[in-house]
């Protein structure tokens, strides 16, 4: 993850690089073309469209809108502000829990024990599962007539007919749990790679000093993981912010708007209402929020410094 920070750190190799003018750009041309056409241009397009009325269902209404879309968003839309709150909560819960539990998991499977390989593969496997598939699995689990609840009822642990996704108070947490199920392995894999690269001598030195396991974790492991944690939490935060697949299929934002995140709301506006102008304005705002928060986070965490 800190590949970026180190790519230019090998002056010896760099000096020997050829300075042929066009070759590198020739090699990079597919990337440059793809990213400008399918990323840069769309972003500019979104910005532009956000100042227009554009709704395929009501073509007579199309035209320049000025700041109408933004006015509607900030003052007239009962969904926008709550969706921001839900997004914030979602990102915070996901990143924190995934990081903490992922780290614990990484440390556990880094220890030596019998059948470590298969055990790792098993606990990491939800990493490869898509949001939609996670939905179909957890729908089965949460459904009051098919779910794990039918078993819990028998032992009297749960009340009859309890439906976690149908309750405004529990739906958010039920969805969060499903996402954690496949999100924790992401951090665990990333952190395990990093934990394995900690020089053994560091631990030995600490052991000689008689440091407790906890102190070794605190003074050796954690500092070593610092940069990776900063970068991976940032990337994961952005990713969870933008994560639509699971919520779109599991709760579709409900009950009410209790699980409607901003990107999910954008997807709904785009696919159900076909209101592209307003959807673009929402997108622009989400993008600005994400960019500002990311820069702030990198500044505050002082990446790469001690």
């Amino acid at each position: 993850m800190n590949a970026l920070a180190t790519t230019s750190a090998r002056p010896g190799a760099a000096r020997r690089r050829r300075r042929r003018g066009l070759t590198p750009w020739l090699l990079l041309s597919p990337i440059v073309v793809l990213i400008s056409v399918f990323m840069a241009y769309p972003i500019i397009n979104v910005l532009y469209t956000s100042f227009f009325h554009k709704n395929v269902v009501m073509p007579w209404n199309d035209g320049f809108a000025g700041l109408d879309n933004y006015r509607r968003m900030f003052f007239d839309d009962p969904t926008f502000w709550p969706s921001l709150g839900v997004t914030g909560r979602w990102v915070l819960v996901q990143v924190t829990c995934q990081l903490v539990v992922g780290l614990v998991l990484a440390l556990i499977v880094n220890e030596r024990f019998r059948a470590r390989g298969p055990a790792r593969a098993l606990v990491f496997s939800p990493w490869a599962i898509s949001g939609v598939l996670t939905t179909s699995i957890w729908l089965l689990l949460y459904n009051p007539s098919t779910g794990i609840i039918t078993v819990l009822e028998k032992f009297g642990v749960s009340s009859v007919g309890f439906a976690p996704l149908a309750d405004v108070d529990t739906a958010f947490w039920a969805a969060a749990l499903a996402e954690l199920w496949r999100g924790i392995p992401f951090f665990a894999i990333l952190l395990l790679a990093e934990v394995q690269s900690i020089p053994h001598e560091l631990y030995e030195a600490a052991s000689v000093d008689g440091a407790s396991r906890w102190r070794r974790f605190w003074h050796v492991t954690l500092p070593h993981l610092r940069n990776v944690i900063i970068l991976s939490t940032l990337l994961r935060g952005v990713w969870e912010f933008n994560n639509v697949d699971l919520l779109y299929t599991l709760t579709n934002g409900g009950p009410g708007t209790s699980t409607t995140t901003l990107p999910l709301y954008v997807a709904q506006v785009a696919t159900i209402s076909s209101d592209f102008g307003y959807g673009s304005a929402l997108t622009t705002v989400a993008f600005v929020i994400l960019l500002v928060l990311s820069i702030l986070y990198l500044r505050l965490s002082r990446l790469g410094k001690d």
């Binding site: 042929r20 070759t23 990107p263």
Partner: peptide, 26 residues
């Protein structure tokens, strides 16, 4: 290779990570 625009390209590549795919749907 070392070439003009390499650092800018690296930054641009990193920045794309902040672009929400869902939001570019339209």
């Amino acid at each position: 290779y070392r070439f003009a625009g390499r650092p800018a390209l690296m930054v641009a590549l990193l920045c794309t990570q902040f672009i929400p795919g869902a939001m570019l749907l339209i």
